[in-house]
């Protein structure tokens, strides 16, 4: 066992997503920051045949809540919802052509924005402008690129092993 196992790669991917989430963006770009963790969970739920994806999404979400300082459970809720929907339609999503898959991801990310708005409205904070939907747009635009990148990385890793 010289090569790091799947668990190590997963851990690295989660850490990378956390870092990207925390990475400060200049000026108005802050509002366009994509939901990196959501994209990661979509990818995991698509790729991993195992059934622990929901639990994994929950744990990743709790970690994010700790890092970002949101209420414990907020990110966990969002990510579990995403993971569940992807798993429900996994068989179809996996064999969609890229543009259809991207459209599905767009729907998931928009749904995620609605979920946060719902969670926040319980606490009495509401303020939804046009900028509110920007993360879903940037996330959708990034999805095809990330998918190609992830596939490429995996091929290289396998090629070495």
């Amino acid at each position: 066992m010289r090569m790091p196992g799947a668990g190590t790669w997963l851990l690295l991917a989660v850490l990378a997503a956390y870092l990207l989430t925390l990475l400060p963006l200049p000026g108005p770009l802050v509002h366009a920051k994509p939901f990196w963790l959501g994209l990661l969970v979509i990818w995991l739920a698509l790729e991993q045949p195992s059934r622990g994806v929901l639990g994994l999404a929950f744990l990743i979400g709790l970690g994010a809540d700790l890092l970002i300082g949101t209420w414990f459970g907020e990110h966990a809720f969002r990510l579990v919802v995403i993971a569940f929907i992807v798993r429900r339609f996994r068989a179809r999503l996996r064999f969609f052509p890229l543009w259809q898959q991207t459209a599905a991801v767009a729907a998931l990310l928009v749904n995620d924005r609605i979920v946060i708005a719902m969670l926040r409205s319980f606490a009495g904070e509401v303020g939804i402008g046009l900028a509110y939907w920007l993360p879903a747009v940037t996330g959708t635009l990034l999805w095809p690129l990330l998918l190609v990148l992830a596939d490429d990385l995996r091929r290289r890793v396998r090629g070495r092993a």
């Binding site: 929901l54 639990g55 209420w71 459970g73 907020e74 809720f77 579990v80 569940f84």
Partner: peptide, 12 residues
Amino acid sequence: LIVYLTAAVALM
């Protein structure tokens, strides 16, 4: 899903 969402809501 129901179990995890309930846990998340309870935590929040």
